[in-house]
């Protein structure tokens, strides 16, 4: 089969897997939060979330009606053939998923306010490319919900304030977001590079599983410190009060300009959906985040 067809099939499966099945690390974090939550209102919310996750799997339906803006991350092997066909395959897969999964049409023209009806439009789905050695093509999908997107923030901090400025920026973002991003959330924190780069890093950091800390022990410590701090806010599940506001903090960075300290916080809702697969040169496919038999 040629790459256009393989990539379309794989991307379709990834969208379907992602919107129906939460990754195991997110499910585990939610179960732990439910066990540890002491606020009655918060516990009710977490119970509803856990029940809903089960129902979604049982009825093969998207766990949340907001199936997000479809964002892809491609690791393209430099020797892979016909890479120029991949984006076309991703668009086709997105259109097919809109009808067949189904997922909600979420692509609107910002001038006419018309919904395209098929989750595609100018530059959407959005695709991030990275060229890597070899022949494999790795596709990751991040269906990104709108409620949590609406509280993402980017700031040009004061370099002289250093890490303390960053800590305050993240804590203030969580305080300001409150109930809006469907807590408990996952935070992606991106630092450095430039204004656009910081947010790109932050959003990509949402793909890191919750049970994987930053390989740099100092940053891992900072992730834990910020996690504990934001869970002292008392915002709780769905903002109705409680001790679980954030399930995990994933930090990543680039070097910064001496005069700039760009920082960004990307929020993901509890429905932290992601799925990935690798296509080898011979056309074989390995699903990396979900067991393939989960897709019926």
């Amino acid at each position: 089969m040629e790459i256009l067809n393989i990539a379309e099939k794989v991307a379709f499966n990834l969208i379907k897997q992602a919107v129906i099945y939460l990754p195991e690390d997110v499910k585990q974090a939610l179960r732990k939060a439910y066990a540890e939550e002491t606020s009655a209102a918060g516990k009710t919310q977490l119970k509803a979330i856990l029940d809903n996750i089960e129902f979604a799997e049982k009825y093969q339906a998207p766990m949340c009606q907001d199936t997000g803006t479809i964002i892809f991350y491609i690791k393209a092997g430099a020797k892979a053939k016909d890479l120029y066909k991949i984006e076309d395959a991703l668009i086709r897969a997105t259109r097919r998923a809109t009808v067949e999964v189904p997922i909600r049409p979420n692509a609107v023209n910002p001038f006419t306010q018309k919904n395209s009806g098929d989750n595609t439009g100018k530059l959407i789905p959005w695709t991030n490319w990275k060229v890597v050695p070899g022949e494999d093509i790795e596709i990751t999908v991040l269906p990104k919900g709108g409620g949590s997107e609406n509280v993402c923030v980017m700031g040009m901090l004061v370099p002289g304030e250093g890490i303390n400025g960053l800590k305050k920026f993240v804590v203030d973002a969580v305080l300001k977001a409150g109930a809006k991003p469907c807590p408990p959330n996952i935070l992606g924190v991106g630092i450095g590079g430039g204004s656009d780069i910081a947010m790109k890093i932050a959003k990509k950091a949402l793909l890191r599983p919750l049970n994987v800390s930053n390989p740099d022990p100092e940053i891992a410590k900072l992730e834990k410190e910020i996690l504990e701090a934001v869970n002292m806010t008392g915002i709780g599940p769905m903002g109705l009060g409680g001790k679980t506001t954030v399930l995990g903090v994933n930090i990543d960075y680039a070097y910064r300009h001496p005069a700039s300290y760009p920082a960004a916080v990307a929020f993901n809702c509890w429905a932290a959906r992601r799925a990935a697969a690798r296509i080898s040169a011979d056309g074989t496919v390995e699903y990396l985040t979900h067991k393939v038999d989960e897709v019926k």
């Binding site: 809903n52 129902f55 339906a61 907001d66």
Partner: peptide
Amino acid sequence: GAFTGGAAILAAR
């Protein structure tokens, strides 16, 4: 009335 955000299948049922 606050309904759990994202609990779309609970609602659909």
